[in-house]
Design a protein around this nucleic acid. Structure first.
Length: 286
DNA sequence: TTGGCACCTGGCCG
DNA sequence: ACGGCCAGGTGCC
């Protein structure tokens, strides 16, 4: 398939929004729902197997008007540098269920550890699938995680998150929750529904909203984004708040809400896109 | 509404 | 080698 717009597969898969893709040589393999996708980019050409073009376009956000989004969020020289550095980075449309569990597991963990947890979880509770002579595992269903024992989940390295994963799976099952329905709700309504799950706070909710529910105004604030704000946008915030943020490590809910509200006001309706570029830029500058 | 702490675990760094 | 530090936070008091 020939790309009609700017896209960078590596940037999009390496910027911390997905945890289960693997690269073998110059080819990426990923499991999306019950689909195993093999994909490779060379310049403006995208070669893939396992799904049709419409599926690929949707999953990688190829229909997003990146040029317009960039124009919208390019408010200062710092973000402009980030936009330039990672040109072609797009927000992926993940499966909401996997995204929710993935980010519940992400709490207080680094990316390498999150990838390990989700790999073990999938190998233990997901269905095996052979493609291209390689083994893959579908992400475990709500049923399989709801019936898993807490200890079984802990053996995957989840620690105290095991309980949250189990409770979330059970709630989805018991209440017949269809996470896709949250797409039709407003950002705040959908956020409120997500916060009802144990183990989901503002940060995790915003990640799920941004990466799987197409709420581009979501602006997840983690330790890296906090650094970006303190180092480059402190003059836009109340000095008292900046001082408090510098004095302790974690964010209070109040601080979180103020920062994300500022970001939505400053960057506009694609604040989430801005977040992803800033986050990736901050992490790779050292 | 806000502040302070416990919490599982593993990769990384000196 | 190996102990300390730090991770894409959340829930509870």
């Amino acid at each position: 398939m020939h790309l009609g717009a700017v896209f960078d597969l590596d940037f999009s898969l390496c910027c911390g929004q997905v945890f289960r893709w693997r690269k073998i040589g110059d080819t990426w393999y990923g499991v999306i729902g019950e689909t195993v996708l093999k994909i490779r980019q060379t310049g403006c050409e995208l070669e893939f197997e396992g799904a049709n073009e419409e599926f690929v376009r949707r999953y990688f956000g190829l229909n997003d008007d990146l040029a317009q989004i960039h124009r919208c969020v390019a408010k200062d020289t710092y973000i402009k540098k980030a936009l330039q550095q990672f040109e072609g980075l797009r927000l992926i449309r993940q499966e909401p269920w996997e995204c929710l569990i993935g980010f519940i597991c992400s709490a207080y963990k680094n990316i390498a550890a999150i990838e390990q947890m989700l790999k073990k979880l999938s190998e233990k509770y997901g269905k095996k699938y052979v493609f291209d002579g390689k083994e893959f595992y579908l992400f475990p269903t709500p049923e399989s995680l709801a019936t898993a024992s807490e200890n079984g989940l802990r053996e995957c390295g989840l620690g105290y998150r095991a309980k949250y994963v189990q409770l979330t799976a059970r709630k989805i099952l018991d209440e017949k929750v269809d996470l896709d329905l949250l797409k039709a709700m407003s950002y705040l309504e959908a956020q409120k529904k997500l916060l009802e799950f144990q183990g989901v706070g503002l940060k995790v909710a915003d990640c799920v909203l941004l990466f799987s529910l197409e709420k581009f105004e979501a602006f997840p604030v983690d330790v890296w984004v906090k650094r970006v704000i303190l180092n480059h946008y402190a003059d836009q915030l109340p000095p008292v708040m900046v001082k408090k943020m510098q004095s302790h490590n974690s964010l209070t809910n109040g601080e979180y809400l103020k920062i994300s509200a500022f970001a939505r006001d400053y960057f506009g309706r694609y604040a989430g896109y801005a977040q992803e570029y800033l986050y990736h830029y901050e992490r790779t500058q050292r």
